[in-house]
């Protein structure tokens, strides 16, 4: 079952840190700058309160996104990589989680008068970016090119 050298176990850990290290700053520093000018909360809610609720939910989503990245890593560790690279699994996990994130956002985020498309864009980023960072650059060698864009990404270092 365990088909990889033990040193590979460090990769998921680094992937988690990378996912959180990118996802959380984007959520806490970049997205407020994007959403503040475009979102109009429902009457009676200040933009600060809305952003706070948004941040709370999305922090959970970022963490879950990284957890989905761990699921990906687990699948690569269980699979030898001989017959395929599990790219469909990677894509499937991403799409499923994106759908879940959108559903959660629709259900849990306070409604707004304006800015829905910006919000959903940020939700998509929060769902996919940490997952991508946790997986694309730190997948174990036998499946490292399964994530889209990983070949180009890995050329950077």
């Amino acid at each position: 079952m365990f088909n990889k050298p033990r040193s590979s176990l460090a990769l998921p850990v680094i992937g988690v840190l990378a996912g959180l290290g990118v996802g959380l700053p984007v959520l806490y520093f970049l997205e407020p700058l994007v959403l503040d000018p475009v979102v109009s909360p429902q009457a009676g809610q200040t933009i600060e309160d809305w952003l706070r609720e948004f941040r709370q939910l999305e922090t959970l989503l970022v963490i879950l996104s990284v957890a989905v990245g761990l699921l990906w890593h687990a699948s690569t560790f269980l699979d030898a990589g001989r017959s395929g690279d599990l790219r469909l699994v990677w894509v499937g996990l991403g799409i499923l989680f994106l759908a879940f994130a959108c559903w959660m956002a629709v259900r849990r985020l306070p409604s707004v008068q304006e800015g829905s498309s910006g919000i959903m864009l940020c939700v998509a980023v929060n769902a996919l970016l940490p997952y991508y960072m946790a997986s694309a650059a730190f997948t174990v060698a036998s499946h490292k090119y399964a994530p889209w864009g990983s070949r180009a990404l890995r050329k950077l270092w």
């Binding site: 088909n3 050298p5 990589g81 060698a141």
Partner: peptide
């Protein structure tokens, strides 16, 4: 190592 492990090893070495 088993054959599958060898595949993984080769990927790591090449990496």
């Amino acid at each position: 190592p088993k054959l599958s492990r060898m595949w993984g090893n080769l990927c790591c070495i090449a990496d």
